[in-house]
Design a protein around this nucleic acid. Structure first.
Lengths: 338, 338
DNA sequence: GTGAAAGCGCTAACAC
DNA sequence: GTGTTAGCGCTTTCAC
């Protein structure tokens, strides 16, 4: 349909060299812009041959010799979770901008060793993980000398970490509920991977909630622990009704929980924001389209992902925190901007 | 902290062979379970050496010689879109089950050539795309002999396709609005990548809506064309109010549009399902947590993704359609199950 | 500014 | 059942 090339064998660098009348080394210099200079005329001939032949470098051969591929791994617990989807889109964009490919892997703590093993076997340039790796998984990347950065995980662990200011963000949301809307009893719906065990390492959101309440001389008694998911939020709606009916406002640790909470409130006769003011954490895009729209703490995922990729490609070993920003919408009682 | 291995040079197959007292070929036979048999005792020695040394096969070397890597590409327009996030999670799960890694790429028609070029350079075992490739991109994979399957794209194109029964699914949803809830004027909110141009190739959802209405002897005059997104759905809310105020029910071509529509209806005095019954298409998880919960046509993404991966790994060239299933919730006027 | 050549780690004939 | 060996396509050192 297109031409008459013989597609039997892949075009190699030698074919290009032959057509351009140069050695294969020169083709390499041209393709990689170095490490040796090439005369302009020669370069043009090579480029021309590459084009004519439809030559495409073999990534495996390059990786084999350099010992480093243009792959980086991204590990998230579940890509369906909109927060991780947003994180993945940010990571893919950043990776692409740096000319590297993202290998997507889903997995939770305890199931990461295999994943890391596979990524290391590919000589991945690095791994970004939003799942907290277990020690065995950490050992794998250490042995393979694969740089690792924890993205969006404030929990202390080895390696570099890039995370949002969970504590400050939570504090600003709760402070908003207290100072702007006058709430005195603000509940916390805190996320957990295992709500029944309740042994999560704290990431600052709970502390931020305490900070804001203590700053205002209020008590921090209304706390409910559920999954991070929308289903968890629906659970929280029930728990709040039975255990903390006096709370007039609530801060949820994820937008998904907020969505589930709103859903779970249906048919209970309580509505948001009139009977219960709501602010959450994440800043996911859908927060603008819920009913009512969510007031939420925006996490700068694009900047964080960019930092994570840059860190992998040129490790500095410096962990750092990113500032968050409160976005007010209807759910806290704010009226839409005119 | 862990041991005292010398992590300077990577452990190779030769190191394993030496420790196990066999040749490197035998190590290969053990690692790959073939192509030649190995005595049990020898196998045990090799496995033991692998374990002791922490040997990990070099994927690049293997790819170089076999000409095929264990990578498959997944191309989606935007992973933040919950439909594609769900598709990606299904694809990742299926890929993992087959022992292959997923390279995530985001891109739309017109920007796929580079992406495919990169994937082909990695000797990807195949590419799953949910974005419709332009001819130039198609040429790349053809030249590189990379199997391609279009997932969730019914639009005619080259290669194999796996898609949901858009037409039948839409028809069943609209029929439900008509037959069960008695609606006579059912609007369609159809998605488009370029609503202003309106030159989308049809995928069956529009036809399914027509089918159901024509089956019932109703007119198909209420049609609005907007983006697939929640923002598009909010636009649709406005357009319906001004252009099609008589419609008493609406079928949206994506859950995101339904979410945006519900959001856009706020403050207009019309509520769902009482003033406007709503059914949509996708079956995304969040449809259960909107307010009201969405009646939607469920797309069997897990099965589709499994088929797509299987097709890449052992091409049959057979395109096929998957059945959908209507899930009724509050938005169409159905009451929750007792 | 260009070329020759030595591998990178692995697979799979092929020999025994 | 096991060992020997010839490359896969590329990068880069070292000559010229």
């Amino acid at each position: 349909m297109a031409g008459s090339e013989s597609p039997q064998r892949a075009v190699t660098r030698n074919d290009v060299a032959r057509l351009a009348g140069v050695s294969s080394a020169v083709v390499s210099y041209v393709v990689n812009n170095g490490p040796r200079p090439v005369a302009d005329a020669t370069r043009a001939r090579v480029l021309d041959a590459i084009d004519k032949l439809g030559y495409r470098p073999n990534a495996a051969a390059r990786t084999l010799i350099t010992g480093r591929s243009d792959l980086i791994g991204l590990v998230v617990p579940d890509i369906r979770n909109p927060y991780f989807a947003a994180l993945a889109q940010a990571a893919e964009t950043a990776a692409r901008a740096h000319g590297v490919n993202l290998v997507l892997a889903q997995g939770a703590t305890g199931a990461l060793e295999q994943l890391f093993e596979s990524l290391a076997g590919h000589q991945a340039a690095g791994i970004i993980t939003a799942s907290l790796p277990e020690p065995a998984a950490l050992a794998v990347v250490a042995r393979g000398r694969v740089p690792l950065v924890r993205l969006s995980l404030a929990t202390p662990s080895e390696g570099t970490a890039i995370w949002p200011d969970y504590r400050g963000g939570a504090r600003s949301a709760v402070r908003h509920l207290v100072e702007v809307h006058g709430h005195r009893r603000v509940a916390l719906v805190i996320g957990s991977d295992h709500p029944e065990r309740g042994d999560e390492p704290p990431d600052g959101r709970e502390q931020g909630w305490r900070d804001a309440l203590e700053d205002a001389g209020l008590t921090t008694e209304h706390l409910v622990r559920v999954h991070w998911s929308a289903a968890g939020g629906a659970d929280a709606a029930r728990l709040l009704a039975t255990r903390h009916p006096a709370a007039t406002a609530v801060f949820t640790s994820s937008d998904q929980q907020a969505i589930g909470l709103v859903s779970g409130l249906q048919g209970t006769g309580r509505s948001i924001p009139d009977d219960l003011a709501l602010a959450s954490f994440d800043g996911s895009p859908e927060a603008a389209y819920t009913v009512p729209a969510l007031t939420t703490v925006n996490v700068p995922l694009a900047a964080m992902a960019e930092d994570a990729v840059a860190e992998l490609l040129a490790p500095t070993g410096r962990s750092h925190r990113h500032e968050t920003r409160l976005v007010t919408r209807r759910s806290c009682g704010c009226t839409p901007a005119a």
